[in-house]
Write a protein that binds this DNA or RNA. Sequence first.
DNA 1: CAATTTTCTGGAAACGATTCCAGACTGGCT
DNA 2: AGCCAGTCTGGAATCGTTTCCAGAAAATTG
Lengths: 373, 373
Amino acid sequence: MAVTIKDVARLAGVSPSSVCRALADPARVRPETRESVERAARELGYHPNRVARSLITGRTANLGVVLPDLANPFFPSVVKSIQTQARRFDYAVFLSDTDEDPAVEVPAIRALAKQVDGFLLCSPRAPDEDLRSFAGEKPIVVLNRRITPFPSVTADSTGGMQQAVAHLHALGHRHLAYVAGPRTSWSNRDRQRGLRAATAARGMNLVEIGHVAPTVDGGAAAADLVLATPATAVLAYNDLIALGLIQRLQARGAEIPGQVSVVGFDDIPVAGLVGPPLTTVAIGKEQIGRVGVDLLLELMADAPARSAGPGRRAAARMPAAPARSVGLGRGAGPLPADAPGRRTASRDSTGTARRVLPTQLIVRGSTGPARQK
Amino acid sequence: MAVTIKDVARLAGVSPSSVCRALADPARVRPETRESVERAARELGYHPNRVARSLITGRTANLGVVLPDLANPFFPSVVKSIQTQARRFDYAVFLSDTDEDPAVEVPAIRALAKQVDGFLLCSPRAPDEDLRSFAGEKPIVVLNRRITPFPSVTADSTGGMQQAVAHLHALGHRHLAYVAGPRTSWSNRDRQRGLRAATAARGMNLVEIGHVAPTVDGGAAAADLVLATPATAVLAYNDLIALGLIQRLQARGAEIPGQVSVVGFDDIPVAGLVGPPLTTVAIGKEQIGRVGVDLLLELMADAPARSAGPGRRAAARMPAAPARSVGLGRGAGPLPADAPGRRTASRDSTGTARRVLPTQLIVRGSTGPARQK
DNA sequence: CAATTTTCTGGAAACGATTCCAGACTGGCT
DNA sequence: AGCCAGTCTGGAATCGTTTCCAGAAAATTG
């Protein structure tokens, strides 16, 4: 039914091998051959079957992206940047939304494993050891979490929390509350850790409120608990929770920021549009995806498709992933962080890359001077 | 490197064909064979290579989703529901974001064509004839647009606009403005058409404001133009534009809804969180994806992978797509529209399915009585 | 012009699974 | 015991492409 390489070969009057060569690497055939093959291919509308190709080359030109919840506006931003960067290198993207269910993650990865050249795991929720079982099988880069031995891209939660706490301290707040996200979220632990350090450093009081879903509803559910504490300001695991908090706090009659200040995390696109606009810690969502893809491509270049030996032939046709693209810095986001120097790149003791992206407090309307007791 | 069917065969002491049979259809081998194959497979951690399988079966168990912009919160909702429904039938999802560029669409489809069993095109922006060139090649279902000969899932824009206009009319508005979305968007034309009909029916005045990007910035750009008209209420192509309008109108000192009422379209998740909460026309985003997948699976069952003849063998192992799943109605959304009767299913003259999903006006805080001149 | 290198090409093998076909074995029946 | 139907299995072919290998043709050299 579909037109194959044989059809082209027949029409062009050459062998399938020559068609392959003519299309893959025109320099390796006589100009006349190239010409007639190209004409035949065009005439028949031939497009090589990537499935068949990947069977023999071991490369699929696909990337797998696994994330917990596309309904959280943070993730579409990341996926979009992944998509953009992947397309630049002619990679297509598989998407798998696990719906915040850790148990779905491993099967999801497993299902995609043979169809992709590598994975980007965004904020994976599965236990470390489950994920580690994929080490060595496929190149994997983890976003928003650190699991040896995988390269990772994370945000500087500590720095962000320090900025946020400094801001609140300057406004006179001394009693803070933190509304925690999912128990299985590494980011949550990271942010919580950063917040504890920051409050401790300034001798501030911190109340932590249980684990809630990282959604608007989760935030709403925590609001009443917040009012029951002496906290004059509350920091949320993420913006969605913060939005839910504001919503419910206002419904309870609490003025924001008059009675309670609220700080989010992520700076999702709508953060500035709500009433009052949300003060939040911004992280470079576009950078996460871009850096993640670059890291993954580097990793894939090191661990080639089939043979383990370095310097494979196929690598020649693979677009160069490394330095060049990293340095491009196209589409500088709102963060001034795109300057090379600001991005922290390090390697741990085993040599795996760890990129930590800078964070930045965006002060909007949801924070103000602490109320007087 | 990876474990293949041969390895399993060797360990189990049988031929590769038997391994295949034992795993695919246990009833076709002796229980002992099945047992030893399963043990060997488990021991080696064997997972069949889906790429190799699809080469011979012609089925990939992948779906392709193409959409214009994941940053528009409308699309993640749709993708998520597609993903959920696809997973239920063991399909994986390829995602391609075209960044609102019509020219990218056809190559994007082309690149995925050989790796998927069918496509869901969400709000495609490419010209009809370009997309029609894929007819017959692959099963395609179009969402938010109608292009013969493809089955489609659309929202009842006319009904939605009628509700919105009735609402505004009742509030005393007589002069309306419409801020149009992308020129290439079928939905925009559909909504515009519906709005014209609705206003004409009531003898209301309608000013149409040029095509803007379907984003917050697009809305902000149109705000000043709105103020220059006699309109007391403005309807936007979508919620993002409406949000941008509100933002900029407020910045210009216009009270909302005191001076201008604003109506959006889509009911994106944040619509209720902004200040003031947005009055908007809701469409069943979860339904769109679910119905789209069901329609596509039906279509794929009719037009099987390889041979054109009906009643293929492979179809037996493919989960039944039709009625059963459609009727499930799991996870009923906020719309009462999940009841079977309310969803309009029709077929045009050529017999292609056209599902039109109901819309519903959600009245929130951004609309109020018309200001007195 | 012969010898040698280089360029170019076709045939065959390979990738990992599925499926067809035919042969081996089992069991039931006469 | 002999025959037949049915069950179960292994070998071979297949999917569409890439790649290896060897041979043919062309170009270069002495």
